[in-house]
C-alpha cells in the first residue's frame, strides 16, 4: 500500500518536474532592455538636432520593453544583468542619417518558480 503510494508520488513528481522543464525550455531566457536615456549622433549627415533627437527618442524607446508586461501576468521575474549599458544603433530612418546612442539597463526574464500565481 505504502509502496504504491510512494510510486504514485514519484510518478507525480516526475511529471511535474518534466512539465517545469518544458515550461522553462519553452520560455528560454529572454533578454530585454529598459531605456533610461538617449542621444542623437548626427554623423556626416548633419541632420536637424531637434528632429534627430525626436527620432532617436522613438528609436530607443521602441527598443525598450514595458516591465509591466512581464510582471502583470504573474509567474515571471525580471533580473537585472547590466546597468547603464551604452548601445549605439543606426537611426534607420529612410529620410535621415545618423546614429542613436541608447543607454539601457539590461534584464533577463525568468520563470518565477518561487512565487507561482
Amino acid at each position: 500500500m505504502i509502496r504504491q503510494g510512494i510510486l504514485a508520488l514519484l510518478a507525480l513528481f516526475l511529471l511535474l518536474a518534466s512539465s517545469a522543464d518544458l515550461l522553462a525550455a519553452a520560455a528560454a531566457d529572454v533578454k530585454l532592455y529598459i531605456v533610461t536615456d538617449y542621444r542623437y549622433l548626427p554623423g556626416k549627415d548633419k541632420g536637424d538636432p531637434v528632429m534627430g533627437q525626436s527620432l532617436c527618442g522613438t528609436r530607443c524607446n521602441a527598443l525598450s520593453t514595458n516591465y509591466l508586461n512581464i510582471v502583470e501576468p504573474g509567474g515571471w521575474r525580471l533580473i537585472k544583468i547590466a546597468d547603464g549599458r551604452v548601445l549605439t544603433v543606426p537611426l534607420n530612418n529612410p529620410f535621415m542619417g545618423g546614429d542613436c546612442v541608447c543607454v539601457v539597463d539590461e534584464y533577463v526574464v525568468k520563470v518565477d518558480h518561487l512565487n507561482k500565481p
Binding site: D37, R39, V50, M51, Q53, S54, G57
Partner: peptide, 15 residues
Amino acid sequence: IPDVILTNQFGKKVR
C-alpha cells in the same frame, strides 16, 4: 531637465 522632445498643442516638436 532631461533632453526630450515633447509635442505642444499645435502638434509642433518642442525641446
